[in-house]
Design a protein around this nucleic acid. Structure first.
Lengths: 224, 224, 224, 224
DNA sequence: GATGAATGAGGATTCATTCAT
DNA sequence: AATGAATGAATCCTCATTCAT
């Protein structure tokens, strides 16, 4: 009974993390790496240290585990967005928002990967969740843009600006590990990497939001 | 539209696009959607209109097809980067680069998805390719940044700036379809959506590159 | 109605029909429908409203439950046969026998189905029981035939006649629900359906037992 | 390659029975014994001498095999019924019908078992087939009854008479092997057993159809 | 007596791959 | 080049059973 031994050594902490959570932990890690199709029930069971059949005492099946992982990951993130939306409108709110989000994702670095996997494969498992997640996200962002009088952006560009923010934040977790593999001084997901990216994003936003629109290089040339 | 040129030499409808290409076409579409693990040989064969066994007359196996899809997709993109790197250093080079890249990806919208899948699952199949791809990409970008005397960025931030660009461009193909699903006036991958994003990115880069650094809101507050 | 008597001693609604019986009730219903292989321990537990493991507090396993269901069903039927064999030899004994059997099976309509399942799958679980059941059944029947002086049957045909009776009686429970599905005015297992069949069988037996042998159409033509 | 050897020894007969048929042969035998739930794909594959996966090159799954077995078995039987319905209305038609049916079932003794299994488990897989099978069967039978002027049966009893015939015929294959196990001189499904039953049924029908109704023993006593 | 969690065996089915034709 | 049939491994899941609580 290895788990018993493992938990016995820990002084007080919960009498072994509940099985359901342990399964979701393992599944989250694997799904974040391989996605739904790339992760097998056996992999999960193996990581939990249990027989595949055992998982079915806790979840109805692979899809149910996947869905639960997604919900467990998104729910607090959604809560954070909600809370930020309600936050005080100080001058440096943007800085605070970026910091809060990066801090949260730094502690849950699998969430952006899970969402990116979903987005790639059709987001079938996300649609219900996404509806309550993307909306507030857009609200938070748009409110933030509008508060800035010097913002160079037109209202019909606002969604693109928000999307850009999401891409930059998520991309740090999903793409930068590849892009910066040999070029950055440290792992993007390390403490240092996260701080670096946070500073970078703050500067980024400062520039983007307060800048006066520069003259257009080639005004209105069509992209084609 | 290079394919059009290639097939122009044959009568009209290409009844005989080489089998190898037809397989890669089918596989590309499926891999872009489901990734390597989420796509079966049978799916591909079905889409080609052929028996699974037949594929083995053209490729050594599933992995070989996957690798070939990746290479076929990345090679021209790599070529484009190379060409852009060599391009004239006009004042509006950045605009041209963005246009060229968006134009290319607009015609090969699966490429960013393939790469994103790879990035998520560990990029095992990409490393060889990535080495010859990411380097020039970084070069092109850094050169471009350096040419801008007013750029607010420090040299050690350059890689992050490049990464940001990639995230913004790729994200449009991998994340925006989800993010803007109900909020944008049209499909991000449609002609109109691509033009919109191209204009947006140009404005973005203009602001980012030429802006004078605004005063920091909270100078040097650590992210945590 | 022995169950009624048993529960009559308790207040009224039997909130505490012994667990063993409740299990057998559930199992009987399911085994009668799906047979041994087609019924899972979980199905039974679900129907009882209990956890699968609980069943093992009352029975050694699935087979034991099955065996117990079989025995609980056959025992009273065997008792009935025995009693009928001992019955008064009145002129209308056959009518009474048919009535008694149909009445009993009407109240235990799963028994013929259970036995038929067994007969189909090899009767491995029945052999011990069958030995003490089929014998008396044959006795009762043969005695009855012999009492009829006008019977057209030869002694070596007696077993076939008995078998025919069983087939007709059991068939009403196992085959007629399918055969008469759209053609009979009511469900064969309903009160009305059972009465109808009882009348029919009585007429049947009257004809069969007392008829004078008609001239053979084609005397002694081989069946092939 | 044992099959090759086996068929090589046979002088001329078809170049090995087609795989599809071999699978259905094996499946039929097993389904007739254990029913759908009691038969595993592996059992079938084992009997065919092939790997379970191979079956899926020929059938979509277990249910498909089952359905095909049912159809292959019922179709010719249905054809026979149809042909008998069209047959000449000679004086001894009943004898001929009984002979034909018993002959057919004697060569396909699994069919009654398959149908009985279905009837017990709900006949879900049979309903479509049954509709085209039970109708003509009823027609054949009723026509036959009506042709007999001395028949003691009322028109509203006709379906019960037909059902009785089916029960007697099917029961010989599904119930008699159990009932007559130790009491008959030979196996009911042997040549001799079949002939015996055929003679018995002919006598049975002669009596039943031509008999004058005997006086009722107890006129109209309700069965309860 | 009941439960929740675990298990090993086996269930159907899918999969990548091979190969004779 | 393509196919149909085969295969062994792996897939997800169910099952009967056990056992500490």
């Amino acid at each position: 009974m290895p788990n018993a031994a493992a938990t016995a050594s820990r002084p007080l902490r919960a009498p072994s993390r509940p099985a359901r959570e342990r399964i979701l932990d393992a599944a989250e890690a694997l799904f974040a790496e391989g996605g739904l199709a790339g992760t097998s029930i056996r992999d999960i069971a193996l990581r939990v240290g249990v027989t595949p059949g055992s998982l079915y005492n806790h979840f109805a099946g692979k899809q149910a585990i996947y869905q639960a992982v997604l919900e467990r990951g998104i729910r607090p993130f959604f809560g954070l967005m909600d809370q930020l939306a309600r936050g005080e409108q100080t001058a440096d709110a943007a800085d605070e928002i970026i910091g809060a989000i990066m801090r949260h994702l730094g502690q849950h670095p699998r969430l952006p990967r899970l969402i990116q996997h979903e987005a790639l494969t059709g987001a079938a498992h996300l649609t219900r969740l996404a509806e309550e997640w993307i909306r507030p996200l857009m609200s938070v962002g748009i409110a933030e843009i509008e508060r800035e009088p010097d913002s160079p952006w037109d209202p019909d560009e606002f969604p693109l600006v928000i999307a850009a923010w999401v891409q930059l934040i998520f991309g740090h977790f999903t793409l930068s590990p590849l892009l910066l593999r040999d070029v950055a001084p440290d792992d993007p997901l390390s403490e240092a990497g996260l701080e670096r990216q946070t500073r970078f994003l703050r500067k980024f936003v400062r520039i983007l939001m307060r800048a006066r629109t520069p003259r257009e290089g080639t005004p209105e040339d069509p992209p084609r």
